[in-house]
Design a protein around this nucleic acid. Structure first.
Lengths: 233, 233
DNA sequence: ATTCTTTGTCGTCAATTGACGACTTATTTT
DNA sequence: AAAATAAGTCGTCAATTGACGACAAAGAAT
């Protein structure tokens, strides 16, 4: 049993108050779409930092609005999270990458380096990585197939272009091709994880690191394919 | 009807039960050290699956004991988490790796492949990765320096051995050497993350994947060092 | 047996936390 | 100006959740 009914008496005491002041109590009035966008933006940062279990009250504080207001835009916290995920996770891929990566007037090494520098800046950010990892860990894999599909496309383009310029014949199994591409894509993804999640690997300039990974990949490409074909025992 | 009959049966059994039987209500009595070990073991699985915000009541259920009992062994949930971290995260490294990796009577490629197959099985497990990621994400980096130190040692051994067998001269900067080693170590770590966190990359046998990564690294080693020395502009 | 220590549970407290009804205030429409 | 609509807050509820005092029971010691 709790003690309640204390505050029932003081209801109508806020009769006299200045009308113009927006700051004192209550957030500035915003149209629906704007407020919603602001909440989503704040929420993506908030959940990226505090995890998907972050509390709605603290999110509301971060937004500068009352907790109740969140529920004017999103029926439940789950819905809010799903929307954050859609915007921040699924919206972090550029279609132009597929074009640029296949522009054979440019050397593959240059294409790859440009792509990964951009990919690191656009997708593999602190915010994206934290949200993605939190979502992946909380088994509720919100929409993994979509991302997996995009990344798979990327991997196949990378392999096709590398194999073409290097004159290497790829194995017929798609999964083998994917796994090979991951030796590059995974090593750079892990580099981003080190930087943003483990907070390390900040001493060498990013473009130099990318250059190393790409060179490694292109130089080891043929031998790697060989290694795969070798012991099919 | 059935409930009553069950209840009666239960009563009679309790009245005339042998001494060895664990009581129907309440956990079997265990000495302090054993119970503590059992709780820690269950807790590591529990927090790996449910995140560090998992509730003590559910952990207690998983242990088959009352929630209160947890506080007989650990003053706070924080203390329990710290202990889990110490045992499961910090205790997952084998000293023998340092020995085997430097056994120059064995080819580097063989050493690396053996090491990483073992490393994947011993350290980069689902449980370890999930605990480590949860801990890394919840900024409270519990003891990051210790792990960073061990991994750094590993990276240096890997680089020393590869450079020796391949007759390559490494750059003087330690951080550059580390970053180069990460092209291998990171790509394999990310492979484990794909398998255990993203639940992908299960089609190609593990040893084959390791072989690919190692071959790639050793083949691209010299060119990568070159790429690093190239544009020091 | 009697006492004492250790192992374990029950029930509860206070703080959180997602959700929402009722109300207030500002802006727009008629 | 009055009415209608939209934006925003207050206060509260029910379920959780970490923590703990008080008590019960199983072994061990006397």
């Amino acid at each position: 049993m709790k003690a309640k009914s204390d505050a029932l008496r003081e209801k109508g005491r806020q009769a006299g108050r200045a009308k113009k002041e927006p700051a004192a109590s209550g957030a500035a009035r915003l149209p629906h779409a704007e407020r919603r966008a602001q909440i989503l933006e704040t929420a993506s940062d908030f959940f990226a930092e505090n995890g998907l279990t972050g509390q709605t009250r603290r999110l509301a504080d971060a937004c500068g609005v009352s907790q109740r207001l969140l529920y004017r835009f999103f029926p439940t916290k789950e819905d809010l999270l799903a929307e954050v995920y859609r915007q921040e996770i699924l919206g972090a891929f550029k279609a132009s990458w597929f074009v640029d990566l296949q522009d054979r007037s440019v050397p593959v090494e240059t294409r790859f380096r440009r792509f990964y520098v951009d990919y690191l800046e656009t997708t593999l950010t602190r915010k994206w990585l934290r949200l993605f990892l939190y979502a992946s860990l909380s088994d509720a894999s919100m929409a993994p197939d979509y991302i997996a599909s995009i990344v798979t496309q990327l991997l196949e383009v990378l392999m096709r272009e590398a194999a073409h310029e290097l004159g290497v014949t790829l194995p017929k199994e798609r999964s083998a091709t994917h796994e090979m591409a991951w030796t590059l894509h995974g090593s750079i993804s892990h580099y981003a994880i080190r930087r943003h999640i483990y907070k390390a690997s900040w001493r060498i300039p990013e473009d130099k690191v990318v250059a190393m990974h790409v060179r490694m990949f292109l130089s080891g490409f043929a031998p790697m394919v060989e290694a795969y074909n070798e012991d099919l025992s």
